[in-house]
């Protein structure tokens, strides 16, 4: 077991999941709040782009991302030529994949709890002369805390199980970009069913922990509301 926990796929999975969770929090919360604002074409476009990975076939999305982020792509080419920085088939490729698939869960969860917030509450804070920043910090954020927690757990759960885009952007390179889910696939492919079983149990335990925490957070939310 110790061997598994210190193995590269486990550490990589944990590392990219945690880093992408932090990024999803930093980017997802403002995005979720932003797209709940007054209806505008730009807002709808942002919402569609952010939500796309939820329903878009992962392989197709992975392929388009290779085109954009690859050495000859628009963004990838710029990064490679300017900073000698490669995304595809590196740690950054896996991180990008995990970040992209988890982000919609975060954004949608924040959006739905922001929508449920009584608009009069925000208006009340405005009549009390509070600045936008104070309203965000003291009124909106504390009252959508439940949505943020749920979003983070869902995004984290989704990150753990990510396969399709990670495979396309990371390349499933053993010892470098092999995540837990890909390691299970590789073990089965090599006929090492015992290892596949161990890895599957490990991944399941992680998922169950997420579910338990998520249920607790829902319970906590109910109690405070």
């Amino acid at each position: 077991m110790k061997e598994l926990i210190t193995s590269q796929p486990f550490l990589l999975t944990l590392e990219v999941s945690v880093i992408s969770l932090i990024l999803q929090f930093i980017i997802g919360v403002p995005l979720g709040i932003y797209i709940t604002g007054k209806n505008s074409i730009f807002r709808r476009i942002v919402e569609i782009i952010v939500t796309l990975p939820m329903i878009f076939p992962p392989m197709a999305l992975g392929f388009f991302l290779i085109l954009i982020l690859g050495k000859n792509g628009l963004i990838g080419g710029f990064l490679y030529n300017t900073f000698d920085f490669k995304i595809i088939f590196t740690f950054w490729g896996v991180l990008t994949a995990v970040f992209i698939v988890g982000l919609p869960f975060m954004v949608k969860s924040v959006q739905s709890s922001r929508k449920q917030l009584d608009t009069a509450m925000v208006e009340a804070a405005r009549t009390l002369g509070k600045s936008k920043f104070a309203i965000m910090r003291k009124v909106i954020l504390p009252n959508i805390r439940g949505g943020i927690t749920t979003g983070m757990l869902l995004a984290f759960g989704r990150s753990l199980g990510e396969v399709g885009i990670s495979l396309m952007l990371g390349g499933n390179i053993i010892g470098r970009t092999e995540t837990l889910s890909l390691a299970i696939y590789n073990s089965v492919y090599e006929g090492d069913f015992a290892k596949a079983a161990e890895l599957s149990i490990l991944l399941s335990v992680l998922a169950i922990i997420v579910i338990v925490i998520s249920n607790k957070s829902v319970f906590f939310k109910r109690k405070t509301n």
Partner: peptide, 9 residues
């Protein structure tokens, strides 16, 4: 406000 709009937090 009619709904009071108190801050629940």
């Amino acid at each position: 406000f009619q709904s009071y709009a108190l801050f629940p937090n």
